[in-house]
Simulated assay, not measured.
Amino acid sequence: MSISVGRDEIIDNYRDELTDAEIYAALAGVERNEKLRNELLKLSQYEVEHAKFWKSIAEEVGIDVGSVKPSRTSVLFSILVRRLFGLGFLVKLRESAEIEAIRRYGNLVRKRALGPYTDKLREILLDEVAHEEVFRDEASRFEAFIDNIRDAMYGMSDGLVEVLAAVAGLAPVVINPILITLAGLIVGTAGTLSMAVGAYMSTKAQRDIRETKLSKIDMELENLNVEDRVKRVKETLTKFGVDEDRASIAALSLSDSVDVSKKVVEVGEVGFSKEALESPGRSALYTGLFYLIGALLVIAPFPLLGHIIGNVGSLYISIVLVAIAQAISGLLTAISGSGKITRTIAMNIALSLGAAAATYAIGTIAHDVLHIAIT
């Protein structure tokens, strides 16, 4: 059975494995936790063996990979991210790349594209899957961090978009930058209150619905024996987002009590959906506060620089600040959902600037065509 993998794909896989080996070795060099450092060194060695495998495949089909080197940019970037944000952040950042590698290798295994070497590739695929288990605790810590700032990111994003759209529409019409600042503050304050109230009501409604469902289950469990009670609790937890293994463990611990609602909160660490137990007050605080921060970020250039560079110049600075903030927000959003990072960032920026462009066009028409100007 022949090998049916393209030259570029073989070289890319070889380079990727070399790069991963370098990344893990470099991370081990800066890791203080001895256990994690040893795990990183093991992973680096695994990746070296994977690279040797692809080198042997290349030699088998007559491809010279002697000049192929790992991506130094990826290595340096990984170290920078590790130092700035921690290992958990880096693990989540690399997760999408790991998933893509697993998908790619899985396709090759299913097609038996490497002929007699397919079984070895299957072993490498299992190694790649096992990599995620090594950093489960680190990834879990970062996911908890993401849970805490999710509302903050959404609130700030809304503040950036809405207030930028407002000041962009006013910039061509209003001459005095202080008036634009005042208008922006009014829009920002109104939006802050609206977002905070909306976040509180939405989160409280979701929490009340979940608690009502659990209360009904409490009453149902009163008439069940222990075995049926365990089964029912497991089914309930699974519906609420807990994976089956954790649901089984939780069900056993909860089966001796009919007060499931209270117990579920107490054992929330077994994996019960965080959204169901989120605090409405905290959600409102994060959403409203970061909406205001986003609004102030947009408004700041006008009172500080408006009299020097004009409203349009101030607007350009606001746009740059919004693009940077939305890039950060998009990065965190994509990582928390294991989505496409580049696509999410580009979409966030495009939507923000698109809204600003539309309102700026309206303001320009009002100024040039209708001769409206406010001094």
Results as ranks from 00 to 15, higher is better:
residue 253 S to R: 13
residue 257 S to Q: 11
residue 275 E to R: 08
residue 271 G to T: 06
residue 288 G to H: 03
residue 269 E to W: 14
residue 287 T to F: 01
residue 286 Y to M: 15
residue 284 A to G: 03
residue 259 D to A: 14
residue 266 E to L: 09
residue 268 G to F: 08
residue 287 T to M: 11
residue 271 G to I: 09
residue 267 V to P: 08
residue 291 Y to V: 02
residue 258 V to I: 14
residue 293 I to C: 09
residue 295 A to S: 15
residue 272 F to Y: 15
residue 263 K to H: 11
residue 276 A to R: 06
residue 258 V to Y: 10
residue 287 T to L: 00
residue 257 S to H: 12
residue 290 F to A: 03
residue 276 A to T: 03
residue 284 A to L: 00
residue 253 S to G: 06
residue 291 Y to K: 00
residue 275 E to S: 10
residue 287 T to Q: 01
residue 273 S to T: 07
residue 280 P to R: 06
residue 260 V to K: 01
residue 282 R to T: 07
residue 279 S to D: 13
residue 270 V to K: 14
residue 272 F to M: 13
residue 281 G to E: 05
residue 286 Y to S: 13
residue 253 S to M: 13
residue 292 L to Y: 09
residue 263 K to D: 10
residue 278 E to K: 15
residue 277 L to W: 00
residue 286 Y to V: 12
residue 292 L to D: 06
residue 285 L to C: 05
residue 282 R to P: 01
residue 274 K to N: 12
residue 269 E to C: 03
residue 270 V to C: 06
residue 273 S to W: 00
residue 276 A to M: 11
residue 272 F to E: 15
residue 269 E to Y: 14
residue 272 F to A: 05
residue 277 L to Y: 02
residue 280 P to L: 05
residue 277 L to F: 04
residue 277 L to P: 01
residue 295 A to C: 01
residue 270 V to T: 15
residue 264 V to Y: 07
residue 290 F to D: 02
residue 286 Y to I: 07
residue 281 G to Q: 07
residue 295 A to G: 02
residue 293 I to H: 01
residue 284 A to Q: 01
residue 264 V to C: 04
residue 293 I to P: 00
residue 253 S to T: 09
residue 261 S to P: 10
residue 294 G to N: 01
residue 280 P to H: 04
residue 280 P to D: 03
residue 276 A to I: 05
residue 280 P to Q: 07
residue 284 A to E: 00
residue 295 A to N: 00
residue 261 S to I: 13
residue 288 G to V: 02
residue 265 V to T: 12
residue 257 S to K: 14
residue 275 E to Q: 10
residue 270 V to D: 01
residue 271 G to V: 07
residue 258 V to F: 12
residue 285 L to N: 03
residue 253 S to K: 14
residue 262 K to F: 12
residue 252 L to C: 01
